[in-house]
């Protein structure tokens, strides 16, 4: 299936120039708290992709019937219902990961990416573009999460997905795991580094004031 250039922009824009996390500053909260290991980061990314896509579709289908004044409550209820489903599924099939994510699965409800996309896109577009927009934004959020999770697990505990990747020989030669990487502040510092690289490449995103 060939995608038209507009669909492509809707799907791929959020991965780079319109990234929800590092450009639009949405959904930072959970991006930082769950990334100390790669596995929860991946699970979280998948959960957010699914919830964003389906919430977008539902709101887009309902967009002509929701009265303007109560739309925020309607949106919250739709999102909360979807998140409840995701959280129950996680509890049933991936209990350990669910434990690690603790309250952050529930906090997808208040993930600003969702509200932002529902307000900005789903209320004004049909179901199919909204679905693509949800997938795109979910993935744009997901890849930041996975990159941060990758570096924090690799440098912090020398493992990836629980498997040892840094060879024992290196430890014998005096290499140490960087314990600082396991601490929460390092997540935000890593995101800052991603922003730095991203904005050096995309000069038009640089801001004038501090």
């Amino acid at each position: 299936m060939a995608l038209s250039s507009k669909t492509k922009a809707v799907l791929l824009g959020p991965l780079n120039k319109n990234n929800p996390v590092i450009v639009q500053v949405l959904g930072i909260c959970s991006a930082l708290a769950v990334t100390s290991k790669l596995e929860p980061s991946i699970v979280m990314a998948i959960a957010v992709v699914l919830v964003t896509a389906f919430a977008n579709v539902i709101i887009s289908l309902l967009r002509k019937t929701i009265p303007n004044r109560i739309r925020i409550i309607v949106q919250l209820v739709v999102v909360a219902a979807l998140v409840t489903i995701v959280s129950e599924v996680l509890k049933a099939f991936a209990y350990d990961v669910n434990k690690q994510l603790s309250v952050f699965v529930g906090l997808i409800v208040t993930n600003c990416i969702l509200m932002g996309r529902l307000e900005a896109f789903a209320l004004g577009n049909g179901p199919w573009p909204s679905f693509l927009d949800g997938i795109g934004n979910g993935l744009g959020y997901g890849w930041i999460l996975v990159v941060v999770g990758f570096f924090r697990e690799l440098l912090g505990s020398g493992t990836l997905l629980g498997h040892q990747v840094i060879p024992q020989a290196l430890y014998d030669a005096g290499y140490e795991n960087n314990g600082l990487m396991m601490l929460a502040p390092m997540a935000i510092l890593l995101v800052a580094c991603i922003i730095w690289v991203h904005r050096s490449k995309n000069k038009e995103l640089q801001e004038e004031t501090n």
């Binding site: 590092i22 500053v25 929460a184 502040p185 390092m186 935000i188 510092l189 995101v191 800052a192 922003i195 730095w196 690289v197 991203h198 904005r199 050096s200 640089q206 801001e207 004038e208 004031t209 501090n210």
Partner: peptide, 17 residues
Amino acid sequence: KPLKGLGITFIITALMA
């Protein structure tokens, strides 16, 4: 320049944290 605005705010938050 690339750190202006958002980037430097992130770094300050990390240091405060």
